[in-house]
């Protein structure tokens, strides 16, 4: 899984059938250094079923893990290889239990 921030959305009317009518979000991947998260420069498209908003920090699941987000367990026909699997509220930074709270950054 990958940590990223939702930066936008993509709309497409012409798509492969099994793609369905889910929202496709643009997610910028994040890396952590010390107390801060910074974008690595990579952007992925992840389908969303849980209502992630622009600016949310999310985790993206890949491959069959992404298909499991939408249609467990018999999902070989589902055309998804990246799905938003959770909206992150906070991240533990180190063993001392310090927490990076992401909630205040929203809205």
């Amino acid at each position: 899984m990958m940590l990223g921030r939702v930066i936008g959305e993509v709309w497409a009317t012409k798509r492969a059938g099994a793609f369905g009518h889910r929202k496709a979000m643009l997610v910028a991947t994040l890396a952590r250094e010390g107390d801060r998260l910074f974008p690595t420069g990579e952007v992925v498209v992840a389908l969303d079923d849980i209502g992630a908003q622009q600016g949310n920090v999310v985790t993206v699941s890949w491959g069959s893990g992404a298909r499991a987000v939408f249609a467990p367990p018999d999902n070989r026909h589902v055309l998804v290889d990246a799905a938003i699997s959770r909206i992150v509220d906070a991240i533990t930074l180190d063993e001392s239990g310090r927490v990076l709270n992401l909630q205040h950054e929203e809205g």
């Binding site: 921030r5 930066i7 936008g8 959305e9 993509v10 709309w11 497409a12 009317t13 012409k14 798509r15 492969a16 793609f19 496709a24 643009l26 250094e33 801060r36 998260l37 910074f38 974008p39 420069g41 952007v43 622009q54 600016g55 055309l79 205040h104 950054e105 929203e106």
Partner: peptide, 25 residues
């Protein structure tokens, strides 16, 4: 690798809190 959709439109913008200045390139 295959095309699964042809894009009509996309929107992307940085939100407040998006830390853009940590790693200048």
């Amino acid at each position: 690798a295959a095309v699964v959709a042809i894009v009509d439109r996309y929107e992307a913008s940085a939100q407040p809190g998006f830390d853009a200045k940590v790693k200048p390139g």
